[in-house]
């Protein structure tokens, strides 16, 4: 990252539900090719913030630009330029692997020709030839998540949003998944990731920690550990999140 091209920029981004301020004047920047960890306790406002960033929830006030597009007026352009994957929903279980690639390729606006090329390359890379015509439901979770990630970046988005991508995955697959994250980042895709595994926070270039709707800290893992005089990110997290006043 010699030149720091900004791909996510927010200024006082806020979401209120009645009197409740779920995300309170969030201001931060994320740079191109960066792996950015978005941490916070349950109920801190991560999901609310993420929904605004991916263009599916309108902010109450404040400003944000995602991949150069405005979160109020250009939500459709935002969706075309990002990828999204979560633990809860990633692929259609009752479609085959090939069908899922076809469907998502189509949704992301690739041509039939492009889809075909991408599909072959993807199946090759993940070594899924023998499984390609089987239902996604029959794949082990770890494979599903790896496939879902590959599909979420099939249209070469500028940013990939990952919402707890490794929950419930075995420790070896969890690490293989992070190998894929590193590779995507090395190819210039910005990675925005939430996780409850604090060892994974260490793999990020920078992390932010949300407490009660506010970004309480933002820095590199090493910077945060120095600032809070902690041995690990887990310690930093516990220190900050324990100060939370609002229950979930």
């Amino acid at each position: 990252m010699t030149q720091k091209e900004i791909v996510i920029k927010t200024n006082k981004l806020t979401k209120k539900f009645g009197d409740f301020i779920a995300a309170n004047e969030i201001t931060f920047e994320v740079y191109k090719g960066e792996i950015f960890g978005f941490l916070g306790a349950n109920g801190a406002g991560k999901t609310t913030a993420m929904k605004m960033l991916i263009g599916i929830s309108k902010p109450s006030y404040g400003y944000a630009q995602i991949a150069g597009y405005d979160v109020y007026k250009e939500t459709e352009l935002i969706k075309k330029n990002i990828g999204y994957m979560s633990q809860k929903f990633s692929l259609y279980e009752d479609l085959t692997i090939k069908e899922n690639i076809h469907l998502f390729g189509g949704i992301y606006g690739l041509s039939e020709e492009q889809i075909k090329t991408k599909r072959e390359a993807l199946i090759d890379k993940l070594d899924l030839h023998s499984q390609a015509d089987k239902l996604v439901a029959s794949l082990p979770l770890g494979w599903k998540q790896k496939l879902a990630f590959s599909i979420a970046i099939v249209h070469k988005p500028k940013i990939i949003f990952l919402d707890e991508p490794t929950g419930g995955v075995d420790p070896i697959t969890r690490r293989q998944f992070w190998d894929m994250i590193y590779e995507a980042a090395a190819n210039g895709i910005t990675v925005f990731v939430t996780t409850h595994y604090m060892d994974e926070a260490e793999y990020c270039n920078r992390v932010s920690i949300m407490v009660d709707g506010v970004i309480q800290a933002i820095d590199s893992p090493d910077g945060l550990k120095r600032k809070y005089n902690a041995q690990s990110m887990e310690e930093v997290f516990l220190m900050l999140a324990r100060g939370a006043k609002r229950g979930e």
Binding site: G40, A41, N42, Q87, E164, G167, G168, H196, M198, E234, F237, L238, A241, R242, A244, E248
Partner: peptide, 10 residues
């Protein structure tokens, strides 16, 4: 504790 943050897990 699946999907629960480190503070609540503790």
């Amino acid at each position: 504790t699946t999907g629960v943050d480190p503070v609540s897990r503790k």
